[in-house]
């Protein structure tokens, strides 16, 4: 088990008094795609947002348990949340480019990290866009507003923007839920390519997508982690009854 990237230990999350995640314990392997599935409201997105501490932004949230990334507890009081987010990037459900040019969107991350050199920035913009497989589409219109792009392009731009800060782990929160089938397949393809370099955790409510893209799958239900394992085995011979019910479409 030497390639475990994230080790979650008894992690519980509360919104005020309401328990939203119940003692989650799981291991997330490095350089693999892990899919989190489950019916809506099951806590999968909430869990994802725990990994880069986005839930810190909600004042009523409190968290117990441990979230060890390469052995470091990111909820330790000596850990800097800003540095964590630089290393753990996030792509959101709704594409959210800044109302700036395409170039500025990609350069945003490097710039806030203090990068000023124009050639260096150019280089990062190009490699990020290439990695996100969108360079050919956008290379001639880098100065156009990002808001003029199509939904699928915007989402890939957001992925490129995340790559530009060279993270280690990429969290994707239903990245293709608002997209058409062609854009979705492009994103899935992209996820496939990226896993060589990055550890990817993807939340999806689309089971085919989970089956197609992920190596491991975790099934969440009502704030509990019901089952986790290799995607193949989860989809073919789930251990838990609830998992089977969900996968066969009996609820959710």
């Amino acid at each position: 088990m030497k390639d475990i990237k994230i080790k979650v230990n008894d992690l519980s999350l509360y919104y005020g008094d309401k328990k939203a995640l119940n003692e989650i314990t799981m291991d997330i392997p490095a350089n693999k795609v892990t899919a989190l599935i489950g019916p809506s409201g099951c806590g999968k997105s909430t869990f994802l947002r725990c990994i880069n501490r986005m839930n810190d932004l909600i004042p009523s949230v409190s968290i117990t348990g441990k979230m060890l990334v390469e052995g470091v507890d990111i909820y330790d009081k000596n850990v800097d949340v800003v540095n964590i987010r630089k290393k753990i990037g996030m792509v959101f459900q709704k594409s959210n480019p800044f109302p700036k040019s395409i170039y500025e969107n990609i350069a945003y991350g490097p710039r806030i990290n203090g990068m000023k050199d124009k050639t260096e920035l150019d280089e990062i913009v190009e490699t990020s866009l290439r990695q996100a497989a969108i360079w050919d589409e956008l290379k001639d219109r880098l100065d156009d507003s990002a808001l003029g792009l199509s939904g699928g392009q915007q989402q890939r731009l957001c992925i490129a923007r995340t790559l530009a800060v060279s993270p280690d782990i990429i969290l994707m929160d239903e990245p293709a839920s608002a997209l058409d089938p062609i854009s979705t397949s492009k994103i899935e393809e992209l996820v496939h390519q990226l896993k060589e370099q990055y550890t990817i955790i993807i939340v999806t409510h689309n089971m085919q997508q989970a089956a197609r893209t992920s190596d491991h799958t975790a099934f969440f239900y009502m704030g509990n982690l019901i089952e986790m394992g290799k995607t193949n085995s989860i989809f073919t011979k789930p251990v838990q009854k609830q998992t089977e019910d969900y996968i066969t479409g009996r609820f959710g």
């Binding site: 990334v69 390469e70 052995g71 470091v72 990111i74 009081k77 000596n78 850990v79 800097d80 800003v82 540095n83 964590i84 290393k87 280690d168």
Partner: peptide, 10 residues
């Protein structure tokens, strides 16, 4: 990439 040192509170 994740060490106690690199993530230290700034």
């Amino acid at each position: 990439t994740f060490t106690q040192e690199s993530l230290k509170k700034q």
